[in-house]
Amino acid sequence: MNKRKWYVYKITGMLIMAMVISSCSSEDEDDDLGNWVDKSVFDGSARSSISGFTINNVGYMGVGYDGDDYLSSFWAYDIEGDYWSQKADFPGVARNAAVGFEVDGVGYIGSGYDGVDELTDFYRYNTVSNTWTEIAPLPTARRNAVGFGVNGFGYVGTGYDGENDRKDFWKYNPANDTWTELVGFGGNKRRSATTFTINEQVYLGTGVSNGIYLDDFWVFDPTTESWTKKLDLDEEDEYAIQRSNAVGFTVNGYGYIACGELSGATNTVWEYDPILDEWEQKTSFEGATRQDAIAFSNGSRVFIGMGRTGTLYLDDLDEFFPQDEYEEED
């Protein structure tokens, strides 16, 4: 009888230990900082290779491809209210792989691919009047370029023109509606690269050309319009930052490169410290691995969503808290 009792206690003890271990291990195995919170009470409009910009506390996203059609609808996500609104349709031909950026409170979307041709046409969006206006076209057509607005000007560069990957950059002046070529980018030609802007300095990296994921990393100073090479993305053995079709964003003075494509969709996230010129891995994106997603950031909060994993087009949105401990349950 004693022996039986002993067995009962032994089994109970083992069960409790197994439960304690299994509930702890899922939290302990990942030491990287960063927490993800699923915002999708409602799923938005599934699409990838979308374009957009964030102005004040509203993220704007539109165009893209949903697996069947190239899209022209355009949506706004209210960061404070956590709701969407469908805005005025993008007036150009439906497309994906366009660029989007903001200059002085005005949004811009242009270039891209309509399923047949790479495009040059460009439009600006007025958030107050909810209207689009066509502006001067980009001098050379391309898709999967990078675009950013800084210091009162818009910049578009790299990408794919239908035959070749590109390394040229163009500067848009809203005051006289003209594009001028900007020389001096020392990096290789590429498509599907990523940028983020910290304190009016624009960082550019990643991307792919002829099947090679590029490892160089650059910073653009808009006051001198010069590019400076930074630490390579594979400088340290543990760095695994190289990829294409990622999203780049800035939160509280740090830059981030997240998700993307590296022989398949990836969900890893890296944080860049501009003072140390060093990278640190963060908690991977919690939702489905994805490429060609979008990030809305107002500088202190960031939301990542949409995109695709293989041929599955995604519509969910997650908020990222880079300095928080990871919690599975939110």
Binding site: S73, W84, S85, Q86, A88, S129
Partner: peptide, 16 residues
Amino acid sequence: EKIVIFQEFIPGFPGK
């Protein structure tokens, strides 16, 4: 109880 889409203006159309 949660607002998921708020549509102040007719969706897709320019202006207000």
